[in-house]
Amino acid sequence: MEALTAIVIGVLTAASVYLMLARNFMRFLFGLVLLSNAANLTIFASGRMTKGAPALVPYGEDAPIGVVGNALPQALVLTAIVIGFGLLAFTLALAFEAYRRMNSVDTDEMRFAEPKEDTSK
């Protein structure tokens, strides 16, 4: 399954890069969501994928029996998902506020911090 996941990750990354290169800020946000998913899957797949054996210690035992899913990448991905959400929310708020101020979602028009140089000089 790692190979198939790698392909899924590639498609996710390609789509997110394509969306993040768009002029529309909302597409950029979609790209960000997809990129988080790609990153999470990458961490998950690098820790190897085990089918149907959650990383739980059965009652009455001191350690899991047999091979179970790798818990470490799961812990990393779990927090990454929540942080990714925080990042998305922040970016969304930024986009929203930018839209309210500049009345545009076209990033080519958003030149508040780096205004166009006056080239006539």
């Binding site: 929310a89 708020a93 929203f96």
Partner: peptide, 17 residues
């Protein structure tokens, strides 16, 4: 933290949009 953080975000979006 998760409860409060997410609720503050969502409420802000609901109230400001």
């Amino acid at each position: 933290v998760v409860l409060g953080g997410i609720l503050s975000l969502t409420y802000a979006f609901e109230e400001e949009t």
